[in-house]
């Protein structure tokens, strides 16, 4: 088990959560702990989304297929942190006041964007098991292209929330632009050039 790099990756992916728990126990979350936790879980969701989206470019640029083995776990961790982030909002920010939450989702573009991004991730998480991959066949990769709009909406969600200093969301946006831009370039080349090698979409 300890020889498997996936074990180590799994533990590493839990570090952001462990850090929050540690800070919480040590009263290290600052004067507004709920805001701190919500923000931290949000930016980690976004980070995991971007890391997941980096797998395919990494595979193509390095020519090494083994990166693909980690993609599912990374994607599921993005969803995991997304669930925690959403939970802090529903519970600690809104206290499950559903009429207010509904109003918030429809009235506030940044909440609308965040919620939509989350909803787009739900079917992806649900079809992440081998059985679903086999059952959906080609449709699986089609379905999982939803991660692109989800990531764009997640960045927008962050961008629209920030009061004035957009440095941080801009960094995420730039990384996302590179990751999506590479795919666009490859797609364009494939379309323009000879369809010699068919690579699965990712």
């Amino acid at each position: 088990m300890w020889r498997n790099p996936k074990t180590w990756l799994f533990l590493a992916c839990l570090l952001p959560l462990a850090r929050l728990v540690g800070l919480g126990l040590g009263h290290g979350l600052g004067a507004n702990p709920i805001e701190f936790v919500t923000r931290s879980l949000g930016t980690w969701t976004l980070s995991f989304l971007l890391v997941t989206l980096a797998v395919t470019p990494l595979r193509r640029l390095t020519g090494q297929g083994h990166w693909l083995r980690y993609r599912r776990m990374l994607g599921l961790f993005a969803f995991f942190y997304g669930v925690l982030h959403l939970t802090t909002y529903l519970w600690l920010d809104q206290f499950f006041d559903w009429p207010d939450i509904l109003k918030d989702i429809t009235k506030r573009p940044f909440i609308t964007a965040g919620m939509t991004a989350f909803l787009l991730l739900v079917p992806l998480a649900a079809t992440s098991n081998d059985r679903a991959v086999r059952a959906l066949k080609r449709n699986w990769s089609r379905l999982h292209k939803l991660v692109y709009p989800a990531a764009v909406l997640a960045v927008l969600h962050y961008w629209w929330l920030v009061k004035r200093d957009i440095t941080q969301p801009a960094v995420y946006a730039a990384v996302l632009a590179v990751l999506l831009g590479l795919r666009l370039v490859w797609w364009w080349r494939k379309r323009a050039g000879a369809p010699a090698t068919r690579l699965s979409a990712g």
């Binding site: 800070l23 126990l25 040590g26 009263h27 290290g28 979350l29 600052g30 004067a31």
Partner: peptide, 9 residues
């Protein structure tokens, strides 16, 4: 980021 630590309870 606050890093202040207090004794465990």
């Amino acid at each position: 980021m606050a890093t202040e630590s207090t004794p465990r309870i």
